[in-house]
Design a binder for these strands. Structure first.
Lengths: 163, 163
DNA sequence: TTAAATGCAAATTTTTTGCGTGATG
DNA sequence: CATCACGCAAAAAATTTGCATTTAA
């Protein structure tokens, strides 16, 4: 759970905060730990609960406040949702695609590389100055497929091509 | 403004609603018109204002209600945002990429084709049953670049490769 | 006349903000 | 002692829901 690269990420984030001139309070350090330890892109509320186990008095506003600092320093990727709470990716803070389960709301990283070359082409074709890309794949995760009574996901089942 | 294909889209949407068994009330017909007439992916509130010009008593709840029907019949694409209102694409209701201006919040369709073949590969690689994809490019639109005092967008300027 | 459509207002949810207090360098 | 961190509570904003009424097939 405390893999070396995850520890390294925590150090990176701490350094980024220090470089920005803010102080590393115990609550903030704990927040970084909780964020990085989570396997599933936690929401602000989930981070709050995690921090509260160690600092029960912590308020949600402080969580949002610190997340804002992390966003400003490029140390966390905010995955925005409309009806639901936003989710945060501290392990890989740069834009990358995600898989989102419509059933259980889990968010997984997608490891396949994106075609970054197309960004330049799109800028050229549209005149937009492009800052970042968001790509999400919405579907049903393997666990939820099983729960729904379907056969095993079988790694290559019939993917709907509904889009 | 009332291009033939746009008229056709309205007819398609009406038929889809009828097929679903709901009635085409005047308010709903006007909503379709407003949605399709808008060049810039209107929000529920903007649609509301448009409908209100003809039916002043219309409530926002009715707008949301009808949008929900359109979503259920696959006749509108909802582009969700966290801090801001969701936007709706009735002209092209199937998943396709969008360009979103961080400055003025305009939303443009991106015409470049997406690689749909990769959906199957991703399903195979992850076990997810994939339903749809969302791809958004966030940046600064040509107009806002000019307003910000930069040189003309020049169709191919330095696109930031920040992501 | 039965069910659907609608307006209105309240409720929900997430995130932000204002203000006062306390810790810290 | 001046600033930053923080808790608390209120505010904001978008969307949903409950309920009563009107409309319409």
């Amino acid at each position: 759970m405390a893999q070396p690269d995850l520890q390294h990420r925590i150090l990176e984030m701490k350094q980024a905060l220090l470089d920005r001139g803010v102080s590393l309070t115990p609550r903030r350090e704990k927040l970084l730990e909780v964020l990085i330890a989570s396997d599933n892109h936690p929401s602000a509320s989930e981070i709050h609960e995690g921090v509260r186990r160690y600092y029960p008095g912590t308020s949600l506003a402080t969580i949002y406040n610190t997340i804002e600092l992390l966003k400003e320093t490029g140390q966390v990727l905010e995955i925005e949702f409309s009806g639901a709470a936003n989710r945060y990716d501290g392990r890989i803070p740069d834009s990358h695609p995600h898989l989102i389960c419509l059933e259980c709301e889990r968010v997984d990283d997608l490891q396949l590389p994106e075609d970054d070359g197309s960004l330049g082409e799109i800028a050229k074709a549209t005149g937009y100055q492009i800052v970042r890309r968001r790509t999400d794949y919405y579907g049903i995760c393997p666990e939820c497929q099983i729960k729904q009574g379907g056969a095993a996901p079988s790694k290559g089942g019939d993917s709907t091509s509904d889009l």
